[in-house]
């Protein structure tokens, strides 16, 4: 009935073989906020990749004369108490903070989705066991867990990512499970069973795509939290070891002492974290809409 309108909509959407340019132009027009989010994220990723080329100072070199220096022409964002250039530290810190944020969110989501999907779809004793394991994970304090991991394996980037991703698993698994429970009762799942489709394929083809919206919302919210969690872990010496710069630690180690005397130590890392969280949220919202066919007219 609406198919002629739909076809023209498709052409507008640039979906009919207009190439990447048409699609990008459509994306910009339809989701301006999403585009801003994408640009912010792209800038941070590029900064992290090309940190060597866009900084004049090493993020690790100290200079007593520059201790707590205010922003100036030579040091755009000032210097910290050890005289390290804050701009360089933020640019290099993007590597660690993005790796921790994206890595732990991605890992937590992947595991959480699998557990939630299996638990909700199969039900029965699988569900029972999976949910009790999730309870245990949730009951385990993150810091104790990180402490044990750091003590056993030594503080490193990977251990930090693992430790932060673990409390994420039950949060994601619960949401995906409850969505799956609701979706499982819908007639299109029954129709798939009537066709004789395997349970695994039903879960992957019919249930998972319909849980994308809450997953994206959760994941974008968790990304910022993960970057901050890394800060507290590093502050306790359980995360990324000194002197490597991470935004979280730049913020946490200076917040109490220097907020009055040298606020640039606090403002700029905080701004970097806020921008990344803001960018992912904008991008996530747009992604959620783009992935929903109902939003496409």
């Amino acid at each position: 009935m609406h198919s002629t309108e739909y076809d023209s909509e498709l052409v507008k959407a640039g979906a009919s073989a207009q190439g990447a340019f048409g699609q990008t132009a459509y994306f910009l027009r339809r989701y301006p906020l999403g585009a801003i989010g994408a640009v912010i994220m792209a800038l941070f990723v590029l900064a992290a990749l090309f940190a060597d080329f866009i900084t004049a100072y090493s993020p690790l070199s100290t200079d007593a004369a520059l201790s707590l220096a205010a922003p100036s022409r030579a040091h755009w964002l000032g210097a910290d108490y050890m005289g390290r250039d804050i701009y360089s530290r933020i640019v290099y810190g993007a590597r660690i903070s993005l790796a921790v944020g994206l890595g732990s969110t991605g890992l937590g989501c992947a595991l959480g989705v699998v557990v939630g999907l299996v638990s909700g779809y199969l039900g029965g004793w699988v569900d029972l066991i999976a949910q009790r394991v999730m309870d245990i994970l949730q009951a385990l304090p993150l810091l104790v867990l990180a402490l044990v991991m750091a003590a056993a394996l030594g503080p490193s980037l990977w251990n930090t990512i693992f430790a932060i991703s673990i409390p994420l698993i039950p949060a994601i698994a619960r949401v995906i499970r409850s969505n799956t429970l609701a979706l499982r009762e819908l007639a299109f799942v029954e129709a798939a069973q009537a066709i004789g489709m395997s349970e695994l394929r039903i879960a992957a083809r019919h249930i998972l795509p319909n849980t994308v919206a809450p997953l994206i919302v959760l994941a974008t919210a968790q990304l910022g939290a993960a970057i901050l969690t890394e800060a507290s872990l590093s502050f306790l010496g359980l995360g990324i070891p000194e002197p490597h710069p991470s935004w979280g630690r730049m913020l946490s180690e200076s917040a109490a002492e220097y907020i009055r005397t040298a606020p640039w130590l606090v403002i700029f890392p905080g701004l970097a974290i806020s921008l990344v969280v803001f960018g992912t949220n904008l991008l996530g919202d747009a992604l959620r809409d783009i992935l929903d066919p109902r939003e496409r007219g």
């Binding site: 007639a187 299109f188 009537a194 066709i195 083809r205 019919h206 066919p293």
Partner: peptide, 17 residues
């Protein structure tokens, strides 16, 4: 044997063409 369902809204996966 195949089946046709009552609810035309929930019997088709909204994310598939």
């Amino acid at each position: 044997m195949q089946m046709i369902f009552q609810d035309p809204f929930s019997s088709l996966n909204p994310r598939m063409t």
